[in-house]
Design a protein around this nucleic acid. Sequence first.
RNA 1: GCCGAAGUGGCGGAAUGGUAGACGCGGCGGUCUCAAAAACCGUUGAGGUAACACUCGUGCGAGUUCGACUCUCGCCUUCGGCACCA
Length: 820
Amino acid sequence: MTTKTIETRFPHEIIENKWQKRWRESSLYKVEDNDPRPKWYELTMYPYPSGDLHVGHWYAMTGADIHARFRNMQGYNVLHPMGFDAFGLNAENAAIERGIHPHSWTMDNINRMRDQLASMGPMYDWDREVVTCLPEYYKWNQWFFLQFYKNDLAYRDFAPVNWCPSCVTVLANEQVIDGACERCDTTVTHRDMNQWFFRITKYAEELLDQSKMDWPERINTMQTNWIGKSEGVEFKFDITEYGLDTKSLVTFTTRIDTVYGVTFVVLAPEHPLVQPLTSTNQKEAVSDYVNKARKSSEVERLATDREKTGVFLGSYCVNPLTGDRIPILIGDYVLNTYGTGIVMGVPAHDERDFIFAKKYDLPIKVVVAPPGWDGSELDEAYLSPGTQVNSSQFDGLNSTKGKQLIAEHIESNDLGTRTVNYRMRDWLISRQRYWGTPIPMVYCDACGVVPVKEEDLPVLLPEDAEFLPTGESPLAVHDKFVNTRCPDCGKPSKRETDTMDTFVDSSWYFLRYASPNYSEAAFHEKSAELWNPVDQYTGGVEHAVMHLLYSRFFVKATRDLGLIKYDEPFKRLFNQGTIIYKGAKMSKSRGNVIAPDDYVNVVGADTVRTYLMFIGPWEQGGEWNDSGINGAARWLNKVWDISHIDPKSFKGSPDSDTEKDLTRLLHKTIMRVGEDIEKFKYNTAISSLMQFTNALAEEKLFEKINYDQWLGLTRNLYKMMAPIAPHLSEELWEKSGMESSVHTQEWPKYNENLAKDDEITLVVQVNGKVRAKISASVDITESDANEIAMDDPGVQKHTQGLEIRKVIYVPGKLLNIVAN
RNA sequence: GCCGAAGUGGCGGAAUGGUAGACGCGGCGGUCUCAAAAACCGUUGAGGUAACACUCGUGCGAGUUCGACUCUCGCCUUCGGCACCA
């Protein structure tokens, strides 16, 4: 803490301990499946047990807890669980650095974090906790894997992976930031390895359908971009003259309308046809180029501002539509992993091809004419639609129409097919790491690749592995683990030694919460059906295309296995913002972490919760400010103070105006706070509660109302505060003579008539400028308003000598006199 | 380069066509105190005035409207995301 923090006047530590104990003893937050109330599943993304919880976690967890508590008070049977995303590379690295076993490192962290989370006073039912590194959980990862394998959704393939030469390990895609290792910033290279994949691309089309969920637009956009659908044509160029097995070069294009303008064809340097198509005198140049391309890093290759280079192979293909002989080149701007790895070059109508053609002096042939084109050379590629020219029988057509007719022509002459391409790749789940779920497969010399039998699950992760990074999975050198018997023939065979990506764990944990201790299956069918799908999911935006996309895939695949009936895991999604400190996101390495414990000790959990939610709109995040927390502390202090006014001070005969005013404010507050919490606008909800408190704290208010009225007002205040400040509101609820928990109370209802003002301030404008504010009855008529306004000296001053053209009246609000 | 979000007092923010700056932080002045802290009261966009009045003011420039922080168009800046995907 850098600046002075004020103290609370209520014994927060005693109150927190007292109520956390009582809630635990009375099982207040126990969630039962069997409950007549409608269900509500409120989920927040579970944390990685990295060690210490910081206020960033509190920010995410408090906001979710408030919403869950609010739904509970609205009469829902709420499931708001918590667990730990416990597998992962950090544990392994910590183990290497400190000589602690990943298991004990992780479990110690979980124990500490569970206490820190509990100090927030959340409504978690800890009996439903999920810890993904335990065999009881990861057994079902293996089970899902086997189901996917059986249904052709899991397969093994030889594929390039990201490799960090410094960490001596494979990295997940998400751990590669701008081509460099997330941990050590070393440039990532590639290796080709046998890997396991989940066939997420099978669901590409369905994943594009976002109509069954209510998610933020930007997340939807990010997913759509990630999937990257593009419709086009695979078009074949003839290479029969070289007498190879392959008779044609298949290119993919979205601009088949430009096919008459092809002046060259470019292969990716890694393409298998490069070698057979290289002529003798180009061999050296080509192999030099290929070697150079192989060595350059991913970042270098993908940099858009990079000069486009290429080499002529010395061979040609034939465009079957024109009979033109077209030079074949290789260029590293062509990606082997997208489309067919071969691109047709149309310099007149593609920016990259234009630059490439200029550089290598290739012809530029216009086939889609810009409006008013005079046949002269183009200064740059023309990308928009236009009129087909130099396109044989399609000349004169609009290119949009041309695209369609040329595609049909190509298909009917067997020169190509219309296809759809996706940028999204299948999900590579193999990791050459120790701290993850073993992939339950066995390699048998006689039977080949054989799945472990379901009844033999889990394949346990051995505790005594040597997990120093060697580039191979640590399990590979663990003889007892590796050597097994073939599930089919019983002969000695070897286990798969890679482990699963930890995103597998988080792709179905929301199903596990429904029946976390069920040992017969991944989830109890009835419980899972009761609670899922998640009604409201909250979490950071950083998971937009990984976790959120994988989970959607998992649910669709599980549905197709016949295990669940719905299509989407998370009906609604809300992204909270990030708490920053000293201008940056909190992180251990930056040394700008705020530990909630320090503040909890001084001002209490409720104050920290309130402050965090008051900083600004939850979705925006904001900067932690030490002095800002004073505002939250002062508010709760004030609530505490007014709750301790001696009941004997209240007068028996109330003042009816005061009563009316307070009743009106109460109903307005109920309305605002409820609407705001519903929409996660916690900052304005707290603001309304502060205003209400300020009205109740007005000097000598007790002389104007009686004690019953006072209790009615304050008890409603406690109920509305309960989701935000659960301990203090509970304590004051009890002190006000109420039994049971404030958290099981019904959310107060407001009466619209009682919330209405009967006196308003009529704003009088002359030509749009405020010239008078007149207090008036809410139902003042236009003519009365007009009359009063015209009598006002301030208004008269500004209308003097002018002709009144028009008067605009907004009932109960405003009168604007237009004069000139 | 493309897409998206945002730009309001000293600061966090409120108000999505009708009183700009709610609520809070910080500051200033006061009460209490031996003194301080806390608390309480007052004040706090800029200019202007003895005080009012009045003028200006929501990134910049136009526009629509009786009236614009809010809608439209064009810029600028910041932050995110994507980025040779053929």
